[in-house]
Computed example of a mutant assay.
Amino acid sequence: MATGLTGHRWDERAQERIEGIVRRLVESGEETGLQVAVYVDGEPAVDVYAGTGGRADGAPPRPVGPDTPIHSFSTGKGFTATLVHVLAERGLIEYEAPVARYWPEFGTHGKERATVWHALTHTLGIPQLPARLTPAELCDWDTMCGVVAGLEPLWEPGTAGGYHGWTFGWILGETVRRVTGLTPGAALREYVSGPLGVADELFFGLPEEAVGRAAPLVEGDWAAWLADLPESAPFRRFVVPNPGLWTTAELANRPDYLRADLPACGTTTARAAARLYAALLGEVDGVRLLPPERTERVAAVAVEGKDRMLLGRYAKGLGYFLGLPAMGGDRSCFGHHGSGGSIAFADRTHGLSFALTRTRLVGGASDTTARLLAGEVRSLVPPVH
């Protein structure tokens, strides 16, 4: 376990409190491995890490270090959204343009006028995947782009919202590929992680040399939580229609899955994810990913109301969730969480960014760690005046 540098609005004694909470969670067995990172005013304030990952190939669990990549599922959607916004700022993508302008094969079955804005806000209408899809097919880019292009919307694009758990990645990822000529992972490196100096810590698919560095995940009660969902539940019926597509440790520990370019997900360190969000709020070592006016636009409420797949009420910006429980319900916060309890977000009220990655996957009532630690951090940083 270790802590990083301190920001000028950050009390050094407070770092000990965060470190103490993380130590207690790991030593009690409630968590196996954690990374927690915070930036305040564009400066690294906390870099805490403790515990281990799971076992891989029968080897003993490896300690989690500050540079250990941890697969964090849909936390990566925030990376994808950020990449799209960086390209939009460069004039390569327009939010109101039909996806089919960039990807003509997508414009079928009523999707001809479905826009990038619809994709970013989960209102496009194709959250579903074929029931017999296999993990191997999931990992094949061309196969999945063909599947997604051929989907028929469950509702007219723009008339309702429903979480596009997997399809979000191919819709926006193939759009990125068409406008840049780069795979989504290569584009992320070129436009986001490279300029931020975290190209070896923030990924969609892992390069071969990084697969062995990643911490294997372990199941808490997340897989059981998914299994307890009624088969008629929209998330279970449409988004993850068979157990092979469930976002579990079993899937995340597959080498082919870890290597696959899947922009619906991400593998990262907490400090890299926190750095990305810090660079959406302001400069980080001279790098700012978006100008203030675009950050304001993408972090504002774009859609709000009942989500047809998740069945709760949510506020969403352009590719980000707003005011999640770990964000204290504050809509000035924007970011994304991932299956099993990871999260990364920016808090505009406090001028901070927060990221938590974890090796033990939990859900439901057990998913309290991010809320606990993010709440502690936010209580210790005074609002920006």
Rank of each mutant, 00 (worst) to 15 (best):
E16R: 10
R236F: 07
T248Q: 03
R331M: 12
E293T: 14
R360P: 00
R271W: 07
W103A: 07
A302W: 08
E89P: 00
G125F: 08
V22I: 11
V211S: 07
A278Q: 06
V38Q: 07
P61Y: 02
L92G: 08
A279P: 05
A119W: 04
L290R: 06
V26D: 03
H385S: 15
R236Y: 06
A299D: 08
R101L: 12
R348W: 04
Y277G: 09
E30S: 13
G351S: 11
Y163R: 09
D330L: 08
Y163T: 06
F321A: 15
R113A: 13
M144F: 02
R288P: 10
R237F: 05
R294I: 13
G338D: 05
P98F: 15
A346Y: 06
A278M: 07
A59S: 14
F168C: 06
R371P: 00
R378F: 03
D41R: 13
T52D: 10
D142S: 14
L202A: 12
V362K: 06
E376F: 06
D41K: 15
A355S: 14
R213F: 02
K77C: 14
F79G: 08
V298W: 00
K111I: 09
N242H: 01
G78W: 06
D285C: 10
P69W: 01
Y95Q: 12
L182I: 08
D347E: 12
D41L: 12
G158M: 11
A365L: 11
A278P: 02
I21Y: 03
T295L: 13
W103L: 14
S193V: 14
I126N: 11
E174D: 13
L124M: 13
E208Y: 04
A100H: 06
L262Y: 00
A252G: 09
A326N: 08
R360K: 13
P291G: 15
E31P: 00
L129H: 02
R55P: 01
G58T: 05
T247H: 04
F354I: 00
G162A: 10
V38D: 04
E293A: 15
L352R: 01
P69M: 02
A199M: 06
R236I: 08
W117F: 08
A365N: 10
P234Q: 12
T247F: 00
S342P: 09
G110F: 07
G169D: 00
G286L: 08
L380G: 00
P292W: 06
G282K: 09
L129P: 00
P383H: 11
V26C: 03
S72Q: 03
R90C: 06
H164I: 07
L206I: 10
L34A: 01
H350T: 12
A274H: 08
A149H: 02
V147F: 01
G335L: 09
R24W: 09
M309N: 08
G329M: 11
A299C: 11
V36N: 03
D347M: 11
L124F: 02
A131P: 02
E96W: 02
L280G: 09
P216G: 02
P153T: 13
D142P: 07
K306N: 12
G205F: 03
A249K: 01
D307M: 14
P184W: 03
A187T: 14
V240T: 12
E96P: 00
G161R: 08
P66N: 13
